[in-house]
């Protein structure tokens, strides 16, 4: 039974019941959640969810029932149900997704984007070591530029594809600092 929150006393009692979270715990949580993006099974499941949600959105907009969608699509209601259920037993092929999108008044769009940079290299006025917070390094090149511009006059020259390339650049030029993300 969850106590109700109606008075200041209720709120204070509720706040007292919340355990304190340590910085280490939060850091561990951040690492875990970031790791999901590198997990193909998680990514596939997420995109299935995104696709199904768009289909449901199309059905709602056009007042289409599952029976009507399956009739227009020429598939059984059971098959459609398994797709909408994000069942692991159904193959979400490109053909399936393109067809179903059209039936519910949408168009399928597929896009591959570059992975986040593994490193950036920076040319600075003087050679020096610089620590970039993990969160900034993961976010984007622009956030790293923003971070560095507060700290030093530096020129971002480009994004390197791998830590190995970054390491070879920084070894060749003492003014180039490779930041592994």
């Amino acid at each position: 039974m969850i106590p109700e929150i109606n008075t200041t006393e209720d709120i204070l009692a509720y706040l007292d019941s919340i355990p304190t979270v340590s910085t280490e715990d939060l850091h561990e949580l951040e690492k875990t959640i970031r790791s999901f993006d590198d997990n193909p099974a998680f990514q596939a499941d997420y995109y299935k969810g995104l696709f199904v949600n768009s289909v449901l959105d199309g059905m709602a907009k056009h007042s289409l029932s599952q029976s009507e969608v399956s009739r227009r699509w020429g598939k059984t209601r059971q098959y459609l149900h398994r797709i909408l259920d994000e069942s692991a037993k159904v193959n979400f092929t490109i053909e399936t997704m393109v067809e179903l999108a059209m039936v519910v008044g949408k168009r399928f769009k597929l896009e591959l984007t570059d992975a986040l940079p593994t490193a950036v290299f920076v040319k600075m006025s003087t050679p020096r070591r610089l620590a970039v917070p993990l969160a900034s390094a993961h976010s984007s090149v622009s956030s790293i530029v923003g971070y560095l511009s507060n700290d030093d006059q530096c020129l971002i020259q480009g994004v390197l594809p791998t830590p190995e390339v970054a390491a070879s650049c920084s070894a060749a030029d003492s003014n180039v600092l490779a930041l592994a993300a």
Binding site: F36, F42, Y46, G49, L50, V52, N53, L56, D57, L84
Partner: peptide, 14 residues
């Protein structure tokens, strides 16, 4: 996964 879905949709329909 649901958090990410929610941030990319006007409303989650599912």
């Amino acid at each position: 996964k649901v958090m990410k879905l929610a941030t990319q949709q006007q409303r989650v329909q599912n």
